[in-house]
Write a protein that binds this DNA or RNA. Structure first.
Lengths: 265, 265
DNA sequence: GCTAAAGGCTGACGTAACGTCATACTCCAA
DNA sequence: TTGGAGTATGACGTTACGTCAGCCTTTAGC
């Protein structure tokens, strides 16, 4: 009843190398090893191999299989635990798939037209944003904004288009993070918001207060909201929460206080 | 505007080691390398890093990212292709999850009671199977079967229980394979059917013809069907098809011929 | 100007589960 | 006896870095 490696391999539908590997890691030692080093497997080893293969098909890693078969780990409990892992893994995949679809839409969507619209949108948005700013935060903020406008007026259309492309990719990453369950006030999210903050700084000398205020605009100002919505309809809220969290945690902005304090770096 | 590794790492939320790795594989070389070997990154590298990280979050492997960014591979097309892979991966996970649930049910289901039932079922099934056999294949087959019955009558209950456990695990593997899309007449399936055939041989000296006939019994004989259904309600059909395929391909059974021919091994 | 603490650099190993050589025996049949 | 088939033992390759270990700058403090 003893079988050689290749016999067992054929019987069980695995490779000889796999049997050797299972021997090496101690998962399935042969029943007998001859003086010449040849491995011989008996009935108990075949049964064990069957159990190994069943668990392997369920996706259980080899060390896990070893624990189940050797130590008294409850097979069913172990499988339940493994099931949880697979569910998490599937969630990850689903998040990726959603993010891919968004990305494809955002990047493949009629490129030329989208960029035209985006370009036009930016110019128009800026004038309306000025009014919004003046109304919400006073003429001083609006004046600062106008200064930025003048400085960036010389930007070429190409600059804008690149900005738009960069910005879109950043927003896509945010949406992907959100889908993975990343909260807007977590460290991981703040790394992304940081990019946003840096981008804003190139257009507009934001203070902690005004950047915090941008959180409102992103949700309530139609133009600002539209830009973000181009990537994902529900993203403005997440981004707004992130912007506020960033202002508080990284810029030292404090609600209900007149004076904003720079975080000591 | 030049940043050191740790600055870039902090900005982008990756590890220094990651940047070094991306340099090593040529995915993201620093803009400048000083005489002392220090890496310095400029604006273009930061932008490239952002694009890398977006694609990475979408699950695209690094070589794929390199192709997209460097060669003129269409980003959107590449993502579509990648999406297909993720979908396949998810299908695999779903198959595993289904198999796990079946396994948990089949193995955890009230062990003692189930085994009692299974044991009782086996005895009872054998007598009814004899009648079925006589009716379908004549007294000769039935007589051969009775001989097997006498030989296995001495088996202890423990033997049966172990058989039941072995058999269940084998059936579970079959159901898992089926869920992965494995056809009952493929080589992979026949490896599993082989186990079934060997198991049957221990109870009953099956000929190619009688084993082929077992295909019918598995679907139509209530007791036989019930045993397989314990694992999965739809498995009997798949197993029956596999049994017939095995009889034809591996045992040399031929439909519509009186004489069955042993396959020359 | 010196010293110590950061920060940077280059290997090199480890990870999961084997596939794929390369090299060297061993066995069996003609 | 010889050749072909089978087996054995390394060892490298795979994915995307984490984690030392050992050595070299740069920077800050005294």
């Amino acid at each position: 009843m003893e079988r050689t490696v290749s016999e067992v391999a054929k019987l069980a539908g695995v490779s000889v190398r796999t049997l050797r590997h299972y021997d090496t890691i101690g998962l399935l030692p042969p029943g007998r090893v001859a003086a010449n080093g040849y491995r011989y497997y008996g009935r108990p080893e075949l049964l064990r191999l069957q159990r190994i293969l069943l668990l392997r098909e369920l996706g259980v890693p080899l060390p896990g299989i070893a624990r189940i078969l050797d130590e008294q780990d409850d097979e069913v409990a172990a499988l339940q635990g493994h099931r949880e892992e697979l569910l998490r893994e599937r969630k990850r995949l689903d998040a990726m798939l959603g993010a891919i679809e968004r990305t494809v839409v955002a990047l493949s969507g009629d490129d030329s037209v989208a960029d035209d619209e985006f370009f036009a949108g930016l110019s128009e948005a800026r004038s309306r944003l000025r009014d919004d700013l003046a109304e919400r935060y006073g003429e001083e903020a609006a004046a600062g904004f106008e200064k930025a406008v003048r400085e960036t007026e010389a930007w070429t259309r190409e600059d804008y288009e690149r900005m738009g492309d960069e910005g879109r990719r950043l927003l896509l990453r945010m949406a992907a993070a959100r889908d993975r369950g990343v909260g807007p006030d977590t460290d991981e999210a703040l790394e992304l918001i940081e990019q946003h903050y840096q981008g804003v700084l190139e257009l507009w000398p934001a203070t902690p207060t005004s950047y915090y205020g941008l959180g409102d605009l992103l949700v309530e100002n139609a133009d600002q909201r539209a830009v973000v919505e181009m990537v994902d309809k529900d993203l403005p809220e997440w981004l707004a929460a992130g912007v506020r969290a960033y202002a508080v945690k990284r810029l030292g902005y404090r609600r209900n206080e007149e004076e904003t304090v720079r975080r000591s770096v």
